[in-house]
Structures are given as C-alpha cells and as structure tokens.
Amino acid sequence: MTREFSYSLEAGGRAAESVPSEPKLLVERLSVSYDGVAALRSVNLSIYPNEVLALTGPGGSGKTTLLRTINRLNDRIRSARVTEGRVLLDGEDVYGPDVDAYAIRQRMAMVFALPTPLPKSIFDNVAYGPRVAGIRKMARLREIVERALRDAILWDEVSSRLGDPAMTLSGGQQQRLCIARALAQQPEVLLLDEPCSGLDPISTLKIEDALRKLKEQYTIVLVSHNTQQAARVADRIAFLLMGELVEHGRADQVVTSPADTRTADYFQGRFG
C-alpha cells in the first residue's frame, strides 16, 4: 500500500526513474502550523536510502520545520501542530498511535545549526546516545565512540583527550563532535540542520567530506540555504518557498535547468 502511494506521488516527479528503490522516508501532504499560522503546506517528498537530499530555500521557508517534524522533535514545541498528512519511515507512520517518539528519534539522528555539545566530556558526549539506548559495557561504548569519531573525521584531533570537556573544542570540532554523537546512536537517517552555518570554510569542507562518505551507510537530509553547498553535496535537491515544496529533483537538474521560475530566481541569487 505504501508502494502504491509512492508511485502515484512520484508519477509526475523527475526523481522516480533515477532512484528506483523504496523510499526510506515518505512525506505525504504534510501541513504544519504554529499557533494556527501555516509553516508547511501539503508537502509531498520521498527520500531514498543512501542518498543526500538537500532541503534548500530562503529563511522561513519551512526547511527546519520539515526536518523537525520528520523526527518529531517539534513535539516539544507546544504551538506546533501537524494539521494534515503524515510521515512514513520504512512505511510506518511516525505519528501513528502506537509509535514511541523516543524510538523514532533514536532512528533519526539530528545535528543542529549551532554546535550543541552537552556539558560533559568528549567521550560522554559521543557515548550519550548509546547510553540512552541502554548500552552500558565500557568496551562496547569505546568501540562505538571511536568509530563515530573516525566517521566524523574528528578522531585524530581528539583521541588523546577524550576526557576533556567538549566545550574546550573549537566551533568546527564541536560540530563534528555533534555529528559523531549523532552517528554513535546508530541511526538510519541523519537529519542535518544547516550544520555548517556557523563555521569557517575549512571546517565546512571537512564536514562536507564526511557527509559524502556517510551516505554509504545512512540516508541523509541536509538543510542548507547555501545553494552551492547543496549542489556540492546533494544527490537531489528540494526547493521550499513559504512552506511550499516548489520543486525537487536531481541536483544537477535543479541547479542548471529548474522547472519553476521561482527556483531559477533563487538559485541565481535574485532573492533569499
């Protein structure tokens, strides 16, 4: 039944033929509002395994809302309401009545726009997710932490001082630490909300390098208002404007020959 939906929804889309597998995430007619003010209007979007999908668009277009609705982090915001539609993860409704939001967030890790290290040591930050999930064995935790830090390209810089407070790291290192923390919870999907917005070019490059490698293991949704970054990193790009999904498709196509004039205008820097 999920398949039927995805076919019908993708019938007019351009991405369907290029990425043939089942979508990892399926966003259907999703509308979200804050205190009755619409932030997302009937968004339809499929996200496939092992791809990087970039959500782009000007500020206030609903990119972050979409991301936070997907992993139910917006549950915490009392004024936020999903007024219509649903989000399916592997065909299962994320907002279903028997679904545990905590389990959903465990499967979909998130990295925020500004680094959010917890007031703990580097090791404890990365081990936070596994511990929350109930992993207690120190040997196992060490293994997970090292792997996550290596995948986030941070291991070489911190391996000798895992006990130091995370706050002592530089901004770029903190953000990679947060990526490592997300990886350590062994998620299926990585949700990244402008992970490079506060960083210098070198840190940005390191994170982009890490993302290109990570898509082999994860499905990645990257929010970025930086169209060049989207073009560099993403397989597909979805363009949002004022809560509406204007168009989505293969990255090169959206960038070079967008179907909608608003997309073209945005990518040429006419607004946003």
């Binding site: 967030r105 936070y128 997300a182």
Partner: peptide, 16 residues
C-alpha cells in the same frame, strides 16, 4: 534549551 534539544534528538526520554 539547546542541551535539552540535543538530548531529545538522540532519542532520550524526558526523564533521561
């Protein structure tokens, strides 16, 4: 608030 958001995003419960 960022501490809480970070914690919740890893799947931690309120109590955790």
């Amino acid at each position: 608030e960022s501490f809480r958001e970070a914690s919740f995003s890893t799947g931690a419960s309120r109590w955790q």
